[in-house]
């Protein structure tokens, strides 16, 4: 355990924990778009920047991304000082220029008092802020179906050669974690389309309702997580019916208690 000061309050935190986690545990809200607990911190969006100093620094200060900065003994942290707010405003100003149509960015920027970007706005800019959360989650789970392609202004998230990828299993996790909702997928009935690829969805073996899983997902995850595939065949509703049935057969004593 280390002791540090956040916004004037003394706080204990487990050594090795990242500053962002500690700050959020205090119910202090700071924005972070590229952060997800399921993957290692990355520091792409820079919005979680905070001000740090120490007694011994004699008034000197430093600005660090809290998602990447481990807590230290005697650290003095300010999460909303005027300089931190100025830095965040600049970042949001830039994000608003490159993704002017993103609802998430607009809302966050207006929270910091920015209603229009002061930079040259890319009117055709999409909602992707290139934080790479989708690609990190995809590779963390072992699929590696998408990555950032091209460089500089042309950089974007895509499958290799913008073609349907053999590694994509249609799990839509990239779309689920995307902070701005840029990655989209279509789902109609038992069909799902994502990253130029069409998937059939598994239907419940009893009632035929969609399980919202693709056969590729079922095969991949049951092998990776070592759970027999037959766990993923029926919908929750049908399983509940079976459970009730079983309970009551036990109560009626027509079936032995296991």
């Amino acid at each position: 355990m280390v002791t540090l000061t956040i916004n004037g309050k003394q706080i204990k935190a487990p050594a090795g924990e990242m500053l962002l986690e500690t700050i959020r545990r205090q119910d202090i809200e700071i924005p972070a778009l590229c952060h997800h607990a399921a993957v290692e911190p990355f520091g792409a969006c820079r919005l979680c920047t905070v001000e740090i100093t120490r007694q011994s620094w004699d008034g000197w200060k430093n600005y660090v991304t809290s998602c990447l900065f481990p807590v230290e003994e005697g650290l003095i942290v300010q999460t909303h000082s005027s300089e931190v707010t100025r830095i965040r405003c600049t970042i949001l100003d830039l994000l608003l220029a490159s993704s002017p149509n993103s609802r998430v960015i607009q809302d966050l920027a207006s929270e910091y008092g920015i209603l229009a970007s002061s930079y040259v706005v890319d009117a055709a800019g999409d909602d992707c802020i290139l934080c790479g959360l989708c690609t990190r989650v995809c590779s963390e789970l072992g699929m590696n179906a998408i990555a950032t392609v091209e460089r500089g202004r042309l950089k974007k998230v895509d499958t290799p050669f913008s073609e349907p990828s053999a590694s994509c299993i249609g799990c839509t996790i990239c779309a689920q974690v995307c902070p701005t909702g840029h990655i989209r997928f279509e789902e109609r009935g038992l069909k799902r389309k994502i990253w130029y690829k069409e998937f059939k969805l598994i239907a419940c073996s009893e009632c035929g309702r969609s399980l919202k899983l693709t056969p590729e997902m079922k095969q991949y995850f049951s092998e990776r997580q070592q759970l027999p595939e037959d766990y993923l065949e029926q919908c929750a509703d049908c399983k509940q019916k079976q459970t009730v049935d079983r309970f009551n057969r036990i109560i009626d004593r027509s079936e032995e208690v296991i």
Partner: peptide
């Protein structure tokens, strides 16, 4: 915070 909303747990629970 750790969830990626893959729906696997909902499908996997044997009791629904």
């Amino acid at each position: 915070l750790r969830c990626v909303r893959c729906h696997l747990c909902v499908a996997a629970c044997p009791f629904g």
